[in-house]
Design a protein around this nucleic acid. Structure first.
Lengths: 217, 217, 217, 217
DNA sequence: TATGAATGAGCATTCATTCAT
DNA sequence: AATGAATGAATGCTCATTCAT
């Protein structure tokens, strides 16, 4: 399976062939891994929560790590999907987003939406990426080859237009991303129960980034 | 032991009473927890790495979790130390930092220095805080009662002076902090082997935050 | 089913009613048991090797042990077949073999041939007879009631003719058999890849036994 | 540890450093492996029989296979010990044994004695050698480099003296050995409860081999 | 104080067998 | 007849913790 096929397959979320039991197992595993971490979760606990025999887990997933990857891999691929490079012509960016602000706002909103829907899985990913080469390596590659490259082109495009300051693209990227992530983490991880006005917050966030990065000083 | 005694004790780095073996155990545990996570590390592995018998660990630390807390707690307390409220009068802030920029730069530089020295322990903290009430609760308290309160006063002080925009202090705080953390994490966690010019990067960072938060728009 | 019916059925190699799948299962099981031993083989491995579903094995053989017996029993019965007593009159022996040498040579040659054809199954038998009463008991009976009795009569016959020394028949039997087996085991089990000149070796073997057992000393 | 050191260590049966529990574990393991085979024995069963916790087994023997090797290896080495080549001069053989008969009788008697003492372990060896490379390889080497070489020299020595027939030494060896083994196996494995007059049987055995191999025909 | 043998609950995984389809 | 999902007991092994020395 080639790289792009793999991506295509991951993004089209066609888990249509999953049995009832399999779905229950995945749900229980997401729950448990998310709450206690991978190493802190036992397959027997997951089986009990899923209402299946322990052996059933291993009929569907060869190992516990296999179960982890089956949970995390497709979701992360889909999280990164918007950054996939499909075309390299400048026109596309110009058509896609007239201003850096547009790009930022769109990304912030739809990735926030994605996080809202899939936070437990993303949390597992964040927790476990440090400990599993099988997780780190493919996503490091995915990031450097797709996300980073596309993001960079977008930044350079708007730097040429004079919209954003002339710092190294990865610095711009880091500042933009960390601001957004710096909203997402408290929002979902630390104080999820607080009432958040996402739209207003994102507006402030975008404005903060834009002024911070504006060339006019 | 009252709350403040506890804090005092933690900050004064009184590791003077530690035996050679104890120090070796701590070192080995930091190494191991940092590399494999708490649940993924075994006490026997730590004992072997420390060159002591398995039982020796439990002579010094009642349980494995005790060992974790002994590692993480004092370092985190010291990480937060600069934000401790010792005085509540406005004069102090004015003397301490003339501009928000000064405050930001000082904090960024010395907390970065602290991270450089203690990154493995901080990494353990970040990884494990989600899974252990014994970690989360005291530091949530420490944060809301000290760090947050002091940070808020500082922000309000500079908002009154018109230096920074009139958003809710916690929004300001989040934006400031996440920008700095957004530098620290790639810097130490993702690409530690890259060559970083910390001084230049921090200057850019501070500038980014200041412009982003400046009231003049 | 009476004892003699059982024997008759086993000897007539009526595997005619076996389906394709059943044959594949038997083949795979022989392969696997022979290579890893009964307890070291799993039914799932056998199923995979046979290209059938796990359940299919249990449709044909109630249990794993049933499968073992189905493999081993008929082949061992046929291995012992030449020793079955069909008649008890002396004349038969005299007609069958003029000298002990003839008997020895014929037995050695055709049992060697049999071993060549069925070695994997015989190996399973040798390995497993120690652990399964269901194997040991019928074949102990078969041996003491048929093989031993007929062998004994033959030996006594040639002792009367003065061809072989006057030791207890079972001693003669043991010496004859162990010499032959002592060729077969290295030949097939230890060094099967060596080049063996079976005819010459058997000639030497028969001579060795004959001289060893000859009464003229 | 060099080859010869290894041998020396194995032969000197210095299990002096074994704790009570360790001894109990070995005994129970020998019992169980001997009765049910390696694959058919469970560590929990062995632990129960030894009166220790299951974990205790694994403190002394890293794996179940380690336990097997710890049982079998030293005993087999000691079984082969009499065949170790210590000297290569002809004089030694002449002093050691005046006739092939002497050699045969001594070997038969003392190896029989050894088997009597260690039969359960030897049985385990015989059963398991087919399935474990870790067993087969070192003993194949030990056999071809020591036992076979010394045996061959002895045979050639007596062939030169005209005592035994001029067949290939390995044929002589096979016939001698299989005759002896052909006594040992029924003696201990098949009918251990029968009353055996070992001395008389060995005399007959030696005579059988000698006449069988005698050159005078 | 330090040891390391001993524990037994718990772990991920495999097993032979069943049964609805 | 054949499947393969499902089972849950059993497996080899690891774990944090205890305790006699």
């Amino acid at each position: 399976m080639s790289d792009s096929e793999w991506i295509t397959e991951l993004i089209n979320d066609t888990d249509t062939t999953m049995s009832e039991k399999q779905r229950k197992i995945l749900e229980a595993a997401i729950d448990t891994f998310s709450e206690k971490g991978y190493a802190g979760s036992s397959t027997s606990e997951i089986a009990k929560k899923a209402g299946v025999a322990e052996g059933t887990i291993f009929r569907h997933y060869k190992t516990k790590k296999d179960l982890l990857l089956s949970i995390v891999t497709p979701t992360i691929a889909r999280f990164a999907a918007p950054f996939f490079i499909k075309t390299f012509t400048k026109e596309v960016f110009e058509n896609e987003y007239e201003h850096y602000e547009d790009f930022l706002r769109v990304i912030a909103k739809n990735r926030l939406e994605f996080v809202r829907k899939h936070f437990p899985i993303l949390k597992i990913f964040i927790q476990e990426i440090a400990f599993h080469d099988e997780l780190r390596e493919p996503f490091q590659q995915l990031f450097t080859e797709h996300v980073y490259q596309k993001f960079k082109k977008i930044i350079e495009h708007f730097q040429e237009k004079g919209e954003i300051i002339d710092l190294p693209p990865e610095t711009i990227m880091r500042m933009s991303a960390s601001s957004i992530i710096g909203y997402i983490l408290p929002r979902f991880l630390l104080f999820p129960e607080k009432e958040w006005d996402d739209d207003k917050e994102i507006d402030q966030l975008v404005e903060f980034i834009l002024y911070g990065l504006s060339g006019k000083r």
